[in-house]
Design a protein around this nucleic acid. Structure first.
Length: 549
DNA sequence: ATTGATGAAC
């Protein structure tokens, strides 16, 4: 009788705690409720433990490691508890832990069920670890779960994420009753691998398309560098497709950024606001990046300043620091770096790359050395890009010998970007002997890059070694290296204009070229517009410059 | 209780 009344009281407390846990918002609250539960002897009550596990493993404000500590104290966890932990880790920063827990589970003699596998496959996908994905797949076959639609969909995605489109397709083809997720996973797989013709085909054969189908296609075009196509698909989506969401807009903004399409970018920003799309951190980063890349650094700063700094991550700081750096606002970018440290945001390799780029733009050699050294001091390993940036700093500043020595004592083999930076420096500072050595090495390393032959040929042309210049062009032709024309875009009143080097087909071509001469002339002499052509014709050094740049 | 998407530097 007495036991009965006690357990009745516990049941009441349990009920109250369960409903409070349902409204829980933070780990702090959860821990308080957990403590109360333990005090009232509920630490072995299944429903109570499940709530604790699920919140800490799955909610956005959760803490999977806390969840795991609670889990470890259970003497014989149910399959639900195992799955919760595996699921939590599959979404975490360390998806590999899902696989460790899976092993533990097998050793405990607990059989995974149809819900365990999608999480394990997802963990492998997020790790891009095909080997582990295949092991999990083998378990799936062995335990007879091969025809589960959720499992098949996650397998398609996993193989596609690992770059194995063939196997993704095999699973897809074997499926009975494909649904939208199956089609989207296949489409996204092709888009991620840059096989846009196939992605487009899948997209067109789909019976039904949702916002993810459209977003995957747009993002595929963006990743493939086909920004105009991406924008065209977005316009089509606006006309006949579902409403875009914040993920779609991230890809679209990236396309605008690469095109330098400021007006379009502003319109996309307006689209986000007008449609009340959630202003996520990722979206804000894309906006900052878009404005910075389109030359609207003030607007980039405006968006950046509007972000509540308590929620920032390293991405948005890097975008802003990098944006300021490319705008030549070196002081500001270094100041922002200090601010970032004040907010306790840990800088990473990319931050240092941005800082080194800033130094390259501002000619700050001393600061560059400082950053390069602190990168190493912070326990990071400089990548070839860091070396390339450092060489760029030295080469731009004319310290060609130092740059050369720096390259010689690197622990890695010089890449083409490292030597390319030195090569440009040699040309800019007219060290044509070193330019020749480096240029020849570059061609040896990268015989299919047309720019290297042309660059070296131009060097010979400047020193009037016409035969050598010619032989460079011939070597290029002999090896079948295709000349890819340089081009750029400029956006005027929302219309994108493309300029190809030496192309004169644009209706305003004459005017453009006369402006170009004017600008070059001004840079050279600060001369006035009325005698520009005369000046230009009389000055052969301008021709040298036009050849070299 | 399950599956599918997005950001920074070159």
């Amino acid at each position: 009788m007495l036991g009965g009344s006690l357990s009745c009281k516990t049941a009441n407390i349990n009920g109250t705690l369960l409903s409070l846990l349902g409204k829980c918002k933070s780990m702090l609250e959860l821990k308080k409720l957990h403590a109360i539960g333990i005090a009232f002897g509920l630490s072995h009550e299944d429903s109570f433990i499940y709530k604790i596990l699920s919140f800490s493993a799955l909610s956005n404000s959760g803490d999977i490691d806390y969840s795991y500590r609670v889990f470890s104290q259970l003497s014989s966890p149910t399959i639900f508890s195992w799955n919760t932990i595996i699921r939590g880790y599959s979404n975490s920063k360390n998806p590999i832990h899902s696989l460790f827990i899976f092993l533990k589970m097998l050793r405990h003699g607990v059989a995974p069920d149809y819900l365990t596998y999608p999480f394990l496959v997802k963990a492998s996908a997020r790790l891009s670890k095909q080997e582990s994905g295949v092991s999990v797949h083998a378990h799936i076959v062995k335990t007879g779960h091969e025809s589960d639609r959720f499992i098949q969909n996650s397998l398609i995605h996993m193989y596609a994420s690992c770059g194995n489109i063939m196997w993704a397709h095999k699973v897809f083809d074997s499926m009975q009753g494909k649904n939208l997720v199956s089609w989207n996973s296949m489409l996204d797989g092709y888009a991620k691998c840059g096989e846009m013709a196939s992605a487009q085909k899948v997209f067109e054969s789909m019976q039904e398309r949702d916002v993810r189908s459209w977003s995957s296609l747009i993002d595929g075009y963006v990743k493939a560098g086909e920004y105009r196509e991406a924008m065209a698909i977005f316009e089509k989506m606006r006309a006949v497709g579902p409403k875009a969401n914040e993920v779609t807009m991230v890809s679209v903004l990236s396309a605008c950024a690469h095109l330098g399409a400021l007006e379009k970018g502003r319109m996309m920003h307006k689209y986000v606001v007008d449609n009340c799309l959630p202003m996520t951190m990722v979206l804000q980063t894309s906006l900052v990046d878009m404005y910075a890349k389109c030359g609207a650094i003030e607007e980039a700063l405006f968006v950046f300043r509007g972000v509540s700094k308590s929620q920032t991550d390293v991405f948005i700081w890097n975008a802003m620091i990098g944006g300021l750096a490319t705008h030549g606002l070196v002081e500001e970018s270094l100041k922002l770096f200090k601010e970032m440290q004040m907010f306790g945001i840990r800088s990473d390799e990319i931050t240092y790359l941005c800082l080194l780029a800033a130094c390259a733009h501002g000619g700050q050699v001393k600061e560059a050395w400082y950053f390069f050294e602190s990168l190493v001091k912070c326990g990071m390993t400089p990548t070839s890009e860091h070396y390339a940036c450092m060489v760029d700093v030295l080469a731009r500043a004319g310290q060609l010998t130092t740059a050369y020595q720096f390259i010689c004592q690197m622990p890695i083999e010089p890449t083409t970007s490292i030597l390319g930076a030195l090569f440009s420096g040699c040309i800019n500072h007219r060290n044509l002997d070193l330019a020749e050595t480096v240029g020849r090495k570059l061609i040896e390393l990268d015989p299919n890059n047309d720019g290297r032959y042309i660059g070296l040929s131009n060097v010979y042309a400047v020193v009037k070694r016409w035969d050598d210049a010619k032989s460079m062009r011939e070597a290029m032709e002999r090896r079948g290296v295709k000349k890819s024309p340089g081009f750029s875009f400029v956006e005027i009143s929302g219309i994108l204009h493309r300029f190809i080097a030496h192309d004169k087909t644009h209706p305003d071509s004459d005017e453009t070229y006369s402006m170009l001469y004017f600008v070059v002339c001004q840079m050279k002499h600060g001369c006035r517009q009325d005698n520009q052509e005369e000046n230009l014709l009389n000055d052969t050094s301008i021709e040298d410059d036009l050849i070299l740049f």
